[in-house]
Design a protein around this nucleic acid. Structure first.
Lengths: 204, 204, 204, 204
DNA sequence: TATGAATGAGGATTCATTCAT
DNA sequence: TATGAATGAATCCTCATTCAT
């Protein structure tokens, strides 16, 4: 079969599965090739080496969502509270609940071995994601919905439980007896959060 | 000739350093041995294989702190708010700011490859740590300091920012331009948290 | 679309360049194809495999000169000394100073891996070349110009410095600080040679 | 078996055999190890990689002879003609007729792939060897035995037939029907040579 | 004829583990 | 106990060759 265009995507798909399932080191290129239904050599037609394949997997996985989130925030008309809720829920639905949710853990695990990847991820994903939350928080402060705060630190507190949930799900959760109820987890987080950052100025 | 009793401890120390610095796979037993000042063969007198060494490193690292935290909570007499603050600050000071802080990231990264380790860590460290926060939160609810809530989920929200901070510090932080101010980060977290979970019943 | 007749020649040209530049093993068929402006597959339309291509390159390179040298000796009317001079100078000008000069080194280097090529080269090039010098020397002996000698050995002494010069030029010379003056080298060789083989019978 | 000291030498011996027999590329490290009676991994205890092994083989092979030749020339008391004869005959006996005789061809064949080796060989072997002949020739000129000549070029003519003989023996000779009589070859060379360079000044 | 995507055998290299000393 | 030389399984990567189009 000969299909140059669709190949890379198929290879990345197979690679994503295996990298998430086994990590970088334990993933055999042979297995990636087999899962994609091609031979080992074919991988090398599209990716210079294992490392480049890995980086491509990460790149392809995260960027699309960020674009959608940035668009949402540009167009949103409701309360900032609802905006943040929606971003987080959307995040979970399109990343967290899918295979892509394994990427953050993967990046964390391999950051030491791939400085270049770490930098790329930091700038193209983390900083960009932080920017989204910074804007959402600032929007709420400006509107009087949220109290004044150091946005750069507050945003980390907003994000942390969700990121850790992702990491958890792809590391220790599988060994846990009872499943975590994601819905309730996020709800608890958002409740505490919005109570914790609501504006107190005009409240009685 | 060194005392044989201290030998395993020296090996674990050297191994901890390297596992944290390079991860499990990239750590060469040769280097561990060298750093401990012994030969490669000697490692095998004390640990059956690399995997056992790794598990021992993790075991030794985390348990002592938990004991202290459990003791603190038994004896504490002040407000629950202060108790939680103290646990978190103590956690940071005795774990987060030391080499041991690298362990959570390490466990997360290798959990897929070491199911047994994952289970051990889950039960001996995570569950035990969660228990500490569960008790502290319940204490506050019982005393009317905190509002009623699902303690099992709330405790995760309490812990998440601190754990993620640890993971961050040992993964992507090193590639970040400007350092994160831990003090302010924790402060922001605690402020939002205590505002978010304070009891509203009797407040004016 | 190019004329099909010239295609093989273009391929051989490209191959010669690369074989001489990099040797047999280090020459990538991909590069040969690219340099000839065709695709890799096309090579296989004209040559069964890399080895056949290699042999064709060698064949094509050396044979034409030999024909000219044989013709020269048939027709020559001057002294044998001048004849030999002319053969050697012609050899250098039409082979040594061109890309073809790299062939002897190539054959020497790969002879162990290509017995068939070695045999071909031995018979079609070496023996034929030796025949030329044998005739030239015998001609001089017969005419009383040169002293009697074992022509089969003497011819090797005549040839050796020139062949080694070729090999040298394509192996270690490139790493040498100062260039060798070919003109003077050949001159020195011929001077010693003709003094060494001149007839002494009727002198003074 | 454990014998750190003698190991490298055994490995180099095995490697020399195979490199000469098959060339660099076609030599399998596996075979080298087997011939030396060790495992593949053991090779890497003593040589960083195949290239280093190759260079070590060359280094070890040639240097010892040069030292002996230099010593000979320092101490020699007879005629320059006999000195040169003795050097060449010694060269053949201790290098040419042994396994070591394959090294020049090897170096020539691989020079393009190993610039570093080429430079090393050029300086440590070729230049040093040329120096020996330069001194011997100059000695003869000074004593009036040889006529005046450009020593730097003449020495190459002296050496060429011997070097080419070595290369020949290890490349195309094996495919030749009848063996070359080395003795007569060298004799022929020396005869022509000494006749060609003898002093004519006072000779009657 | 011509293409170039796909193949897969083959080999260098690494390193956890063993074991004779 | 301690050593460190020796092992060899395991895997990434290359590239000549094939063949569907």
């Amino acid at each position: 079969m000969r299909r140059k265009e669709s190949r890379p995507s198929e290879l990345l798909d197979a690679a994503l599965d295996l990298f998430i399932e086994r990590g970088f080191n334990a993933t055999r290129l042979n297995d990636v090739a087999q899962r994609a239904g091609v031979s080992k050599g074919t991988l090398y037609l599209y990716f210079a080496n294992k490392e480049e394949l890995f980086k491509s997997v990460i790149r392809k996985g995260m960027v699309p969502y960020l674009q959608r989130a940035e668009q949402l925030i540009d167009e949103y008309r409701g309360s900032s509270r609802d905006l943040i809720k929606q971003i987080i829920r959307g995040w979970w639905d399109s990343i967290g609940a899918t295979r892509l949710g394994g990427i953050p853990k993967l990046v964390v695990a391999e950051s030491g071995n791939f400085p270049e990847l770490a930098k790329f991820y930091l700038e193209e994903v983390i900083h960009r994601g932080q920017g989204i939350f910074a804007r959402a928080l600032q929007r709420g402060i400006d509107s009087g919905e949220f109290r004044k705060m150091d946005v750069n630190y507050a945003l980390r507190i907003v994000i942390a439980p969700v990121v850790l949930l992702l990491i958890w799900k792809h590391s220790l959760q599988p060994y846990e007896r009872k499943a975590l109820k994601v819905e309730r987890y996020l709800e608890t987080h958002l409740e505490i959060l919005f109570d914790g950052i609501r504006s107190t100025e005009k409240k009685q």
